[in-house]
Design a protein around this nucleic acid. Structure first.
Length: 572
RNA sequence: GGCCCCGUAGCUCAGCUGGAUAGAGCAACUGCCUUCUAAGCAGUAGGUCGUACGUUCGAAUCGUACCGGGGUCGCCA
C-alpha cells in the first residue's frame, strides 16, 4: 500500500477515534468525503488533506482546534515527520524521508491494484460498416476501445470486446449495387457519370473482382444475397487484418442480420406494446433543414417524445425493413440478456443525438439493472506540412488506416489516438509523429525506457557482478529529484484507477509523459554535476540504489505501455 | 429552433468526483555536450481559465443564463 493510501486509512482511524472520544458529534461522518492529495507544492509537505474543513462543523471544536486535534494524533505516527496547519484549514503532512525512500520497495514489486467490486463489462467498438476500408476516424475508436478494455481488465474486471457488424440495410444494398456496377462496367470509365448511392474508390473494384462471376449471370434474389454476403465477408477480412495490425482484437463479432430475426422483432414489439410505447402513425417532419421531398408515410413508431425526444422515432420502415434504431434495440436486448453490469459503446461523435434515444428505449423496454456508457470520439484531422488533409468519401479520396499505419507504425498510432481526451478533435500530425525527438510524445516516453535499459547495460560493464540488485540502500537517494521521482512512481496505480473510473485512457498517457519528463530531467543532472550521475564509479552502493530507482521507472513505464499495447524498446 | 460536445498562454492541450500561487509541450528569447543516449536538459517571457450571475469558508472545476465554434435532428449506421 502506497503512502497516500496509508494516510487515508490513518485519517479514517482518527475520525473513528474522534467519534469515540465524542469530539465528533454525528456518526454520519463516513458519508462525507475528504481528500488526501499529494501536495502540488513542497511548502505544503508530501500530503495535504482538507479533512478538517470537511468535518469541523460536526465536532465540538472550532476549525482550528479540530485541526490541532488531528495534528496531535497524526504526530503519534512514526512515519510522519511534521504536520502543519495552514489557512484556511489545510493539514499538510511532511513524511519522514526514509519512509518515502522505502516506497521504492513497493514500486519494485508493483502490481496493478484490483478493484473490490469486479464487474462484467461488454465493450463494443469499431463496428465500422463493412462497405470499405477503415480510415483514421475508425482507428480512434478502435484504439480507444481497445485501450479501455485493457485498462478495465488490468484492474480485474471481466471484459468482453465486441464488434457489431452492420451487414443489413440500405448501406449493404448500395454496396451490392456498387459491386454489380463494377462487374458490368469493367472497362468503362465511371468517374464522370458516377451514380448516386454507389461507393466510390478503387477498393470496391478489387472486391468485385474477387466475387464469383457466376453470381451475376442471372439476377435473382438468392444470388443477390450471396453477392452481399461475399462482399461483406471479403471486406470484413480486410478490416480484421487492419485491426490486427494495430493490435486490436475482438472476442465476439455479432451480425446485425443474424440477430434481427422475425421472432426477435415480434418479441420486442410485443414488449413495447405492453408498455404502450409504440403505435402506427406518422412521423413529424424533421426540423432544422428544409426538407422539400418530405412525404408522410404511416409506420411503426416508438414514443420517444414521452422521453424528452422532440419527435417519435421509426422502428419499421414503410417498406417493412427495420430501422437501425430497431436493430439496435434488438442488439442491446441481446447484450442485456447476457447480464452485463456495464455496457460500453464507443461511437463517433456524429451519433451524439442518438445516445439518449437508445438509452431511453432499452431502459424502458428491458428494465434491467445495468449501466450504459456511450463514449463518443471526436474527429481526427490528418495533418501534413501544417495543413489539414481534405478527405472526401464521395470522391473516394479518403486516406485509409493501412496507409497511415504504414507510415507511422503501430506504437505511434496507438499512443497518439488516445493522447487527447476523446471528446476533443484530434490533430494527427504526420510530421510530428514520425519525428524522433522530444516533440513526439511517443518517442519521448519510449526513449525514457530505452535510457533505463541502456544504463543497466553500462552498469554491468563498469561494476560487473559487484553491482547489487537486492537489499538496496535507498536511504542514499537524497536528491530532491530522486524523492519526487519516487513519489511520482507511487502514483502510477492511482492514475490507472483514475483512467478506469473516467473511462479515459489519456490519463495514462499523460502520466507516462509526466514520468518520462521527470526521468529525463533526473538523468540530465549528471551532465552538470558528475556526482549526480546515476552511475558513480567509486560508489557502488549509491550507484546500485540509483539503479534501483531507474529500474522502478523502467518497470512502471513498461507496465503502462503494456496496458496500451505499445512496445517498450530497450534501445533506440 | 431542439438536443449533445467544445471554449484555459500566440498555437496544441493537461488540470474538471470544488481546494492554497492555474500547469505542460510547441513557437520566441538565453544558456548547457572532452564524462551514463544532447534523440536530451535548464532558464526567461507569456493568463480577466468565453461573459455574467449564483451556490460555497473556497469555483477553471458545480448550477443557471448568455456569447462564440462544431456536431446532429427521415425511411443513413
Amino acid at each position: 500500500m502506497y503512502f497516500y493510501e496509508n494516510l487515508k486509512l490513518t485519517l479514517f482511524d482518527i475520525l473513528k477515534l474522534m467519534s469515540q472520544q465524542k469530539i465528533l458529534r454525528n456518526k454520519g461522518f463516513e458519508k462525507k468525503k475528504f481528500n488526501v492529495e499529494t501536495s502540488s507544492n513542497s511548502d505544503f509537505g508530501d500530503i495535504s488533506t482538507n479533512i478538517a474543513m470537511v468535518y469541523w462543523k460536526d465536532s465540538v471544536f472550532n476549525l482550528y482546534e479540530f485541526a490541532e486535534n488531528i495534528k496531535e494524533k497524526l504526530l503519534k505516527k512514526s512515519d510522519i515527520e511534521m504536520v502543519e496547519i495552514k489557512n484556511p484549514g489545510f493539514i499538510n503532512i511532511f513524511l519522514k524521508k526514509s519512509f518515502i525512500q522505502n516506497q521504492l520497495k513497493l514500486v519494485q514489486i508493483n502490481k496493478i491494484k484490483k478493484v473490490s467490486n469486479k464487474k462484467k463489462i461488454n465493450i463494443e467498438y469499431v463496428s465500422a460498416n463493412p462497405t470499405g476500408l477503415m480510415h483514421v476516424g475508425h482507428a480512434r475508436g478502435a484504439v480507444l476501445g481497445d485501450s479501455l478494455a485493457n485498462l478495465l481488465k488490468s484492474v480485474g474486471h471481466d471484459v468482453v470486446k465486441e464488434y457489431y457488424i452492420n451487414d443489413a440495410g440500405k448501406q449493404i444494398e448500395f454496396l451490392k449495387d456498387t459491386i454489380l456496377f463494377h462487374k458490368n462496367n469493367k472497362k468503362k470509365k465511371y468517374k464522370d457519370d458516377f451514380l448516386k448511392n454507389l461507393y466510390p474508390g478503387e477498393y470496391l473494384e478489387k472486391v468485385s473482382e474477387n466475387i464469383s462471376t457466376d453470381l451475376f449471370t442471372n439476377e435473382n434474389l438468392e444470388n443477390s444475397e450471396e453477392i452481399k454476403k461475399n462482399a461483406v465477408n471479403y471486406i470484413l477480412k480486410d478490416i480484421k487484418k487492419d485491426l490486427k495490425d494495430i493490435g486490436v482484437h475482438h472476442d465476439v463479432f455479432v451480425s446485425e442480420k443474424e440477430i434481427s430475426t422475425d421472432t426477435q422483432v415480434k418479441n420486442i414489439i410485443s414488449i413495447l406494446k405492453k408498455k404502450k410505447l409504440v403505435y402506427e402513425g406518422f412521423q413529424d417532419k424533421p426540423k432544422g433543414i428544409d426538407k422539400k421531398n418530405w412525404i408522410k408515410k404511416k409506420q411503426l413508431l416508438f414514443k420517444s417524445k414521452l422521453l424528452n425526444d422532440d419527435s417519435d422515432r421509426a422502428l419499421i420502415k414503410p417498406n417493412g425493413d427495420l430501422t437501425y434504431f430497431m436493430s439496435d434495440i434488438i442488439y442491446h436486448g441481446k447484450k442485456i440478456e447476457k447480464k452485463y453490469d456495464i455496457l460500453i459503446n464507443i461511437w463517433g461523435k456524429d451519433h451524439s443525438g442518438y445516445v439518449a434515444r437508445l438509452e431511453n428505449a432499452i431502459k424502458s423496454a428491458f428494465n434491467e439493472d445495468f449501466k450504459l456508457k456511450v463514449k463518443l470520439t471526436a474527429l481526427v484531422n490528418l495533418i501534413k506540412d501544417n495543413k489539414v488533409l481534405k478527405m472526401s468519401k464521395r470522391q473516394g479520396t479518403y486516406i485509409t488506416l493501412r496507409d497511415v499505419l504504414k507510415e507511422v507504425g503501430k506504437d505511434a498510432l496507438r499512443f497518439m489516438m488516445i493522447s487527447r481526451s476523446s471528446d476533443k478533435v484530434l490533430d494527427f500530425d504526420f510530421d510530428l509523429i514520425k519525428s524522433r525527438n522530444k516533440d513526439n510524445p511517443v518517442f519521448y516516453v519510449q526513449y525514457a525506457h530505452a535510457r533505463c535499459c541502456s544504463i543497466n547495460k553500462i552498469a554491468n560493464q563498469i561494476f560487473e557482478e559487484k553491482i547489487t540488485k537486492k537489499e538496496l540502500d535507498f536511504s542514499l537517494l537524497n536528491l530532491p529529484e530522486e524523492i519526487s521521482l519516487i513519489k511520482l512512481l507511487c502514483l502510477f496505480n492511482k492514475n490507472i484507477e483514475l483512467a478506469v473510473e473516467s473511462y479515459e485512457p489519456n490519463k495514462l498517457t499523460n502520466y507516462l509523459y509526466e514520468l518520462s519528463k521527470n526521468f529525463h530531467s533526473y538523468w540530465s543532472l549528471g551532465t552538470l554535476n558528475s556526482g549526480k550521475r546515476i552511475l558513480v564509479e567509486k560508489n557502488i552502493k549509491l550507484s546500485s540504489a540509483r539503479l534501483g530507482l531507474v529500474n522502478g521507472v523502467k518497470k512502471i513505464i513498461s507496465q503502462g505501455l503494456k496496458i496500451l499495447d505499445i512496445s517498450s524498446p530497450s534501445s533506440m
